[in-house]
Design a protein around this nucleic acid. Structure first.
Ligand SMILES: [Zn+2]
Ligand SMILES: [Zn+2]
Ligand SMILES: [Zn+2]
Ligand SMILES: [Zn+2]
Lengths: 176, 176
DNA sequence: GTCATGCCGCTACGTTATAACATGGCCCAA
DNA sequence: TTGGGCCATGTTATAACGTAGCGGCATGAC
């Protein structure tokens, strides 16, 4: 039980998919960029740029902040990763064919996980309000903090080890 | 024409109102906090913490980052100011009786202004999606970047100096 | 070949935020 | 009056996040 495989197989598949996507666009998913993307996709939680830096270095690479940020810029431009403003962190896009799309995020303050959703109703509500004000939107940041389904259950329904064995706690709530 | 008074009068009124509000709650709007709030309210655009620090020092104060951040924490806890995640900056709440309320922001990348709105439709759309996922939201960040009505006009309708004489440009677009 | 382009290594720096500890005033009880 | 709890602030240092700018090197076009 030294490591459990949450999703080790789809990772490579997603990398291959990303490669194909970039190739189709004439963009170059270099080894560095691919490695960074791999680390992001492998992480169960959003990753900060400096955490990525550390992990790359642990893997033998020798690089500096600008290199990681450039890779992140590329990946964001390709829509392969999103930036979470509240966390100063990055997550892989869950879309099958990533592009520059409107997305919303639900961030659990207990377990630290980020769920990406693409809800047209939210996007439309925002667009409608913008239109009403004569505002021309370019991109919208929607990030909701709270408790995910699992943590909300184990938090209120004390004693019931229904879905998630360990309750909320271990994660630092990220004060802000 | 060295200075035009955009809203110099309501400022003091809003400070008095904030004082009354805090008093009613048993919170103490000290001189420091009041000064910080005053600077934020006086600014036509969102202000960064270190910009506040500089302005406080220009006014003779001698303080360090933690002091400003503590004041900002207090003001946010009272709902008197909001933090804009995309800008790492702060704005005064436009609500008449500020409290901890859901708000959305429209940020103009041309003129740098931030418009606060409180649109129930957006809040409800977010809440509905959260409920559907079993997610218990605590607070939502909604920040839309784009061009405000004035800048959108002067940007597309070149030559027409309808409302805003100077087109978009002088403001640094804040890359991210 | 050689030239342009794009990617990356690297130094140095700028910006934003917090930890940790010390100080001073205020109120109240002993 | 004296001590202690509480809150706001002062102070020092450092953590965390992000960028400017330059130069080298590979790749691919001509
Ligand atoms: Zn996405
Ligand atoms: Zn959770
Ligand atoms: Zn508000
Ligand atoms: Zn504008």
């Amino acid at each position: 039980m030294t490591r459990q495989p949450p999703a080790p197989e789809p990772l490579e598949a997603r990398l291959v998919q990303a490669e194909a996507l970039c190739a189709r666009r004439g963009a170059r998913l270099t080894k560095l960029r691919r490695d960074v993307l791999g680390l992001i996709l492998a992480s169960p939680e959003p990753v900060g740029a400096y955490a990525l830096l550390d992990r790359m270095r642990e893997q033998g690479a020798s690089l500096q902040p600008p290199t990681v940020y450039r890779a992140l810029d590329f990946l964001m431009a390709q829509g392969l990763v999103h930036r979470l403003e509240r966390l100063n962190a990055f997550v892989g896009c869950h879309d099958d064919a990533p592009h520059d799309h409107a997305a919303q995020f639900f961030l659990c303050t207990a377990c630290g996980k980020a769920e990406e959703v693409d809800d047209p109703a939210i996007a439309e509500a925002v667009a409608a309000t913008a239109a009403r004000r004569g505002f021309a939107p370019l991109r919208a940041t929607v990030e909701v903090e709270g408790l995910c389904a699992g943590c909300a259950l184990s938090g209120s329904d004390r004693g019931g080890s229904s879905t998630s064995p360990d309750g909320p706690g271990p994660h630092r709530p990220h004060s802000h």
